[in-house]
Amino acid sequence: MSSVLHEKRFEVVVIGASAGGIRALTMVLSALPEDFALPIIIVQHVHPHSGGYISHILGAKCALIVKQADEKESVLGGTVYIAPPNYHLMLETDRSFSLSVAAPVNYSRPAIDVLFETAIDAYYDKIVCIVLTGANHDGSQGAAKIHRAGGYIIVQDPTTAEADSMPRATLAATPVDKVLPLEQIGAYLLQLINRSNQLWHFP
């Protein structure tokens, strides 16, 4: 049997969120079961001195393990990683994290574009990329690159977003695979991963 058959269509989920993001993320993540197999990596824009409160909030509301991503930590399935405040979060080709204090990108550190772009080097086309609510355009360039690399893009329907410029900017920057109202994103993601990975196993 060729090893290609065992390859999964998707191996990671990356999510970008800004204004209104905590609520949106809670909604998406709480739809996922404890045995969700993929790693989920999140950049949520936050104040530089805000500490680790987001992982606590999200951790309390979802079945998966939620933690702040550590420098050099290896990415594991079934875990939700949050970018630490005031650092860019990047993926290395060996699927471990690295951090940087380089200048803000799109006025943001962590920046969504930085995570999205480096995710391609680690996961190629095996990425599900989700852009949620936000009042800027961070993430749009990274999402466009993930699309060109063959990844799958989901954008929150701007009319359901607390701040609609971020999803709109992504829709303007790239063709996407799916636009969904917030409350459907979690369930859709679950279905997408289950279905596509099955198909991939038994074509």
Partner: peptide, 9 residues
């Protein structure tokens, strides 16, 4: 050096 940052620069 960790490659991701070097590559971005």
């Amino acid at each position: 050096y960790a490659k991701a940052s070097v590559k971005r620069r």
